[in-house]
Computed example of a mutant assay.
Amino acid sequence: MPDLHVLRPFLPAVTANRLRGDGWQVCELDGDADIADSVSLLVDIAAATYAPALLASVVDGEHAAVEGFSGLSGYWRTSLAGGPAPGPLPVGEVARHLVDWAAAARRTVDAEPITELLRAPAPQRVDGAFEELLSLLGLAGTADTTPETLDGRAGCVTIRRWTLG
């Protein structure tokens, strides 16, 4: 995934790249990654991979803003683990966007568990909530030996992490 042309400017900030099942990849960037326009980045990643894209910004493992884009769901934003308000959309509407995002990834998921996760009290660390969200979106937790890719390309999840000091 770091080889995607849209992610090349961020290569110096890549701290990890790991596979999930079905060809999905998670790329972690340090907090110094200068993402001037997250919406454009998500649209560019979706165009380059032919798959929906996610971007999570995690602060000290305690708060996360999650943004997503697909042709089916459009752009949406929410927060996990007691982060700032998710924006103007009610939780139920954000959950519907997430269900549509999953459908664009060729996954059929239920909105109710996603809604419960979005309304859940903050855990000790947001990392577990984010991994749970990926699972609820139908993105398997480990790489398969025979990955099913979307139109021959893998999907992309990008995480940017900040540590406050």
Rank of each mutant, 00 (worst) to 15 (best):
G74S: 05
Y75M: 07
Y75N: 12
W76V: 06
S79T: 14
S79E: 08
S79P: 02
L80E: 05
A81I: 05
A81P: 03
A81M: 05
G82I: 09
G82R: 09
G83N: 06
A85N: 10
P86V: 01
G87A: 04
G87T: 01
G87P: 02
P88S: 12
P88R: 13
P88W: 11
L89H: 07
L89Y: 04
L89E: 15
E93R: 13
V94Q: 04
V94K: 01
A95Q: 02
A95C: 08
R96V: 11
H97A: 11
H97W: 03
L98S: 09
L98I: 10
D100R: 15
A102Q: 04
A103F: 09
A103D: 13
A104K: 00
A105P: 00
A105S: 06
R106E: 14
R107C: 11
R107F: 00
R107H: 09
R107T: 02
T108M: 03
T108S: 14
D110F: 05
A111H: 08
A111F: 00
E112H: 12
E112S: 11
E112D: 14
E112V: 09
P113D: 03
P113G: 03
I114Q: 01
T115M: 05
E116T: 08
E116W: 01
E116H: 12
E116A: 13
L117A: 07
L117I: 05
R119D: 12
A120S: 13
A120E: 10
A122V: 08
A122E: 06
P123W: 00
P123G: 07
P123S: 05
R125S: 15
V126F: 08
D127F: 12
D127H: 15
